[in-house]
Write a protein that binds this DNA or RNA. Structure first.
Lengths: 129, 129
DNA sequence: GATAGTTACTTGCTTATTGCAAGTGATGGC
DNA sequence: GCCATCACTTGCAATAAGCAAGTAACTATC
């Protein structure tokens, strides 16, 4: 992992944005929180993430220790993706983002009640939301 | 403001990322929370935001109702920037991002104690952190 | 053995964005 | 008239985003 000298500053907010400050990374983390783990799962999400962006973001999230990939099949070898503890701890951020949008954007969807009750620990036990 | 049909999906998380899912917007919001309001203030931040990016992001934040600009001088006219209520309500998101980074990135800075005690309401009273 | 289907990517290309460095405009001070 | 200040804009090169098609490694079917 990077030394703090390699970030554009030592501010923790600024550092966080170097990890997840783009339009797709937290969408992928959302899908992982919801129990999705394979390529087809992510591609079925309503945003229609381009396949090259999906591959690139999953690789970066894995490099940053937010996601791990585990083979679920041998011939050919194919991988499923899961959140690490570091990744699961992004959940409170997702929850706060949802609260913000629900307050300020009319007509957006409401996640299930469980979404606000689930904790990072729950995700690691692989409970589905 | 956009209708929900104009976002890439109706998911509140996804919508939020269309507003602030980049590496600079929340850094600017951080600076506004800290009481900064003029160009020179933002440019003095440690990340060294390029001036064209600063201008572009402030304009977008204003268009999205997250920031307002008010003239502080007439000749020539010059503007200072402040958070709206919508912008101040991003504070819990900033706080969660900081908690995450402090847990997972060694050697990052620690904000003042007040950062975690301040509320969105406090920001609107223009209390400095 | 050839063909088709499935899943997970990669590739080539176009378009868009990022960001560097310099420049511009409207003032005031000397 | 020149210089300084502050808030941007501009031109351009580099990088990233994303579209659409393609590829690889299997299995199933005929």
């Amino acid at each position: 992992m990077k030394k703090t000298e390699e970030y554009r500053s030592k501010c923790p907010l600024s550092i966080a944005l170097e990890f997840i400050g783009d339009k797709w990374s937290l969408v992928i983390v959302r899908d992982l929180c919801m129990g999705k783990s394979k390529y087809g799962d992510f591609q079925n999400s309503p945003e229609g993430i381009p396949t090259n962006i999906l591959a690139s973001r999953l690789r970066k999230l894995e490099e940053n220790g937010i996601v791990i990939k585990e083979p679920y099949q041998d011939r050919p070898v194919r991988y499923a993706y899961f959140l690490t503890e570091k990744g699961a701890d992004l959940l409170p951020i997702l929850q706060q983002l949802v609260i913000w949008t629900q307050k300020y954007v009319p007509d957006c969807l409401t996640p299930p009640e469980s979404f606000f009750q689930v904790t990072s620990q729950d995700l690691l036990r692989k409970d589905k939301l």
